[in-house]
Amino acid sequence: MSGILIVDDSKTSRKLLRELLEDNGFTIIGEAENGEEGYQMYKSLKPDLVTMDITMPRMDGIECLSLIRHADENAKVIMITAAGQREKMVEALKRGAEDFLTKPFDANRVIETVKEVLDMG
């Protein structure tokens, strides 16, 4: 089973996403609460997929995405942000994000996107 790393500064958001993914058979192997921690955990855990919130203090998701893709060009990262942040999504896709999800989460869209990115669709 594929291992997923969740990077989000909101504990509530991490909890809701973890529950949704675990209820659908995915395994969460780690949670990080900012970009710096996310990058360190990516290097140590080598997850199959990262879900990355964009708006975070200290190091945001786009900077963390860039570091991860620089270290591993095959890294699979799905970006997550509140609705209405189109410019940031476009920037993230240019920097190598596989796809994006918006909050509030649409459960079906989350599962479909994760499966597609993991080539399970």
């Binding site: 958001s13 509140a82 609705a83 209405g84 942040q85 909050k103 509030p104």
Partner: peptide
């Protein structure tokens, strides 16, 4: 997090009206 959803819904509507919004954490 709930407030982030509210701000996102506002930003989405403003984007559809041609005004970009940037949300701080």
């Amino acid at each position: 997090e709930l407030l982030n959803y509210i701000s996102g819904a506002y930003a989405k509507e403003m984007s559809e009206r041609g005004t970009a919004c940037e949300l701080q954490p």
